[in-house]
Design a protein around this nucleic acid. Structure first.
Lengths: 224, 224
DNA sequence: ATAAATAATGAGTGATTACTCACTTTGCTC
DNA sequence: GAGCAAAGTGAGTAATCACTCATTATTTAT
């Protein structure tokens, strides 16, 4: 088993583990998590009291501490898994297959990623908000996220970019700048439509297409 | 006096007012602000105690409440002005002159904005972090920021975009999507280099140029 | 120099905090 | 249905919270 395969194995264990964590939960424990997510995302972790969580969950305050040693423990059990799930699609062994199979055009690749992660954001708005706010203040969260991003996501996307660069589909520029640009554009779109402007409806498919078009060809007037 | 002029007047008053707020401060009051900014940005507003601020500032806890009615008052006196200063260059009457004078190419316009705001971010990292985190939890801050962005910044940038579209320098697309794309790209660059990756040095001028080039012409391979 | 105004103090306040623990209830096994 | 482990309880605890106020120190005005 090669080093790479071992690494992949470790990652898939991680994903499976984080997927298992919503089993074997008591009714009350589920209620606690539900209430905590709600209030954490509304008022922030530090401004939320355990008594408030207990009240909203309909349990005694002591019950919270049966399942979670500390309030911070409760936070990490909420914010940790979402960090992994956020990058999960890029961790799978299949992701490498992007290089061989289904996407022969960069646009198709970006479109698939954008669709998939946009749906994920839509279904995890509160959790993402919690992770996003607390990552600055909880060093263990920061470590986890940094490690996931720099060691895994960035590396894998770099390989994809280099692949498309060899084909001449993408300009010769440092892959990190290409990735930063693509991430800026797509995250900017997602942030704008899901967080800043959640009420106004929009044609998601078209917006993705238009955004990727700008990412590919820019905003400069085109003479053809 | 036209309605527009009245609006401008009101805005300039606002700017001047927010500029005057760092006068007539006692030594101790300045120390309090300094300490509060430091700790708020490190641990977040809710996780910071007034006793901790007093200790770091070297004053009695009561002194804080001589100058600020509540802890939240202290926060707003810090985060409010920075929101205005962040968009100040776009509020000035001069900004309209972009349409006539110094920038005949869109690239030059974006480059000037990027340089200026990047320097601003560099000199206000902590304040921006505070504003950014607390805007979600303090409705009055949210209102202020939303009002500044939607009623002023967006409108003005739309006029600039339309101007360049008429010249054929920018593709015919909804101005808001052009602006969202430009904002994504430039804020993405600033965020990456100032917040996510503050240690690694980089050639700022070149990075701005390369980023604007991608904004203008995209990442697609170019055949010329 | 004196008086008035403002700035600064720090001990004290009741409320709230995260968390504990002795106890009761529940669900499962044989 | 007895026995037992796990789940759930809620009153209790010491610490900390934002904030007050009577008092003292410092500026400012005349």
């Amino acid at each position: 088993m090669s080093e790479l395969d071992q690494k992949e194995q470790w990652l898939e264990d991680l994903i499976r583990l984080s997927g298992e964590d919503d089993q074997k939960k008591t009714d009350k424990q589920a209620k606690i998590l539900e209430a905590a997510i709600e209030i954490f995302s509304e008022k922030g972790f530090a401004a939320t009291s355990t008594s408030e969580i207990a009240q909203k969950a309909g349990v005694a305050e002591g019950t919270i501490f049966r399942h979670y040693k500390t309030k911070k423990d409760l936070l990490l059990s909420i914010a940790g898994p979402i960090a992994i799930k956020m990058v999960a699609p890029f961790l799978l062994r299949d992701f490498a297959k992007v290089l061989d199979l289904p996407y022969n055009k960069v646009e198709d690749f970006y479109r698939a990623v954008a669709r998939d992660r946009m749906e994920f954001v839509r279904q995890n708005l509160k959790l993402i908000k919690i992770l996003f706010h607390e990552v600055s203040f909880q060093p263990e969260l920061m470590e986890q996220v940094k490690s996931l991003l720099t060691n895994v996501v960035v590396q894998r996307f770099e390989r994809v970019i280099k692949h498309f660069q060899e084909q001449g589909q993408i300009i010769e520029a440092p892959p990190w700048r290409i990735n930063r640009s693509a991430a800026s554009m797509l995250l900017g779109m997602i942030t704008f439509h899901m967080f800043l402007n959640p009420d106004s409806s929009f044609n998601e498919e078209e917006e993705i297409d238009r955004t990727i078009d700008i990412l590919m060809h820019g905003i400069a007037g085109r003479k053809d």
